[in-house]
Amino acid sequence: MTLILGYVATLLVTFFTYNIFVIGLNIQFGYAGILNFTVITFMAFGAYFYAVFVMPHADNSSQVFYILGLHWPWPLAMLAGIVASGALGYLVGLIALKRLRSDYLAIVTLATGTLVYGLFGNNNKLFDGWSGLFNVNQPFQSVATNHPNEFSWIFVVFSGVVMLVVWLFANRLYASPLGRSMRAIREDQDVVDSFGKNSFKVRMLAMVIGSVIVGIGGVLTIQYIGALSPAGWTTGETFVVWAALLVGGRANNLGAIVGSLLVAVIFNEATRYIPQVPSHPNLIPNLRNVIIGGLVILSIWFRPQGVVPEKKASFLEVPLVDKYAQGFPGEEPGGTLSPAASEA
C-alpha cells in the first residue's frame, strides 16, 4: 500500500510538472508562434539555479563542486531558479526574435541547448559536471517527518497548487488583449507591426513568460527528486513536451492537460516498466524516442489542431440588425459566399 501510494503521488507530481512545461511551451508556440526546440534547457536552468541557491557551500572534500551554494531558504531559491530561466529566455530572445525567420529562432534555441548541455556537462566547477547535483534540499522537510509518503503527498498538493496558478494565469493571458496580440503575431507579425504594435516586445514577453513557466516546472522537478544530472535533460525530453502540446492541442491549455496526461504520464509510465534487454541497455529509451518523434509527425499530419483544438473566441454582444441579411454585398443571393467555415 505504501508503495502504491508513493507511486500515485509520483505520477501526480509528474503530471503537474509536465503540465507546467507544456503550458510554458504553449505560451511560446501556441500563443505567439515561437519555435523553442530546447524547452528542457530552461527546465534545467530553473532546476540547477534553484539547487545552487538552496544548497550549502559545496563540500569540496567529497569531490563535489558547484557554484554559489548560498543556502537560501527554499522559496527564495525557487525565485532565483525561475529568474535564471527567464533570463535565459530573454537572452535567446534578444538574439533571435529580431525580425528573423522562424528557422533562425529554432536554430538559436537548438544551439543554445547544445551549448548549455556541453558547458554544464564538461565543466565540473559549475554544476558538478556529468555527475550532476544530488542531495538538493527539498521543501517541507521540517513538516514531513513521520512517514516516507508524507513528503510526497504534501508535494502533490504543493505542485498542484502551483500548476493551478500557472493554468489560471495562462488562461487569463490568452483571453486578454495581450494574448490576442500574441496570437495575431503568430499569424502575421508584419501586419501587427503595421498597426502600431511593437511585435518584438510582445514576442519577447511570450518568450520570457514561457521560459519562466518552464523554469517553475524545473524547480518543482528538482525539489521533488532532489537530484538532477545532464542525463535527465536530453533532446528526447524536449520532444515529450512538444508531443504533449501537439497531441493535446496548441493554443488551448485544456489541450496541454490532455497532452501531458496522454504522453508524459500514460505513455511514459506504460513504457517505463518494460524489462530491459541486457545486451542492449538503451533499447527501451530509444524505442520510446522513436515513438515520440513519430507521434509528433503523425499528429501534425492527422490532427494538427490536437485532441482539444483552439477555442473560437466568443464575446458578449448586443445583437445588431444585419444590414446585409440577404447576403454578402456584391454577390448574387444564395451565391458562393455562405460562411465558408462549414468546409473547414
Binding site: N289, V290, G294, P304
Partner: peptide, 15 residues
C-alpha cells in the same frame, strides 16, 4: 510545422 516535422525526424533517425 515543416520545421517541427524535420525536428521530429531527427529524433526518430538518431534513435
Amino acid at each position: 510545422y515543416m520545421l517541427i516535422v524535420t525536428f521530429g525526424l531527427s529524433l526518430v533517425l538518431d534513435n
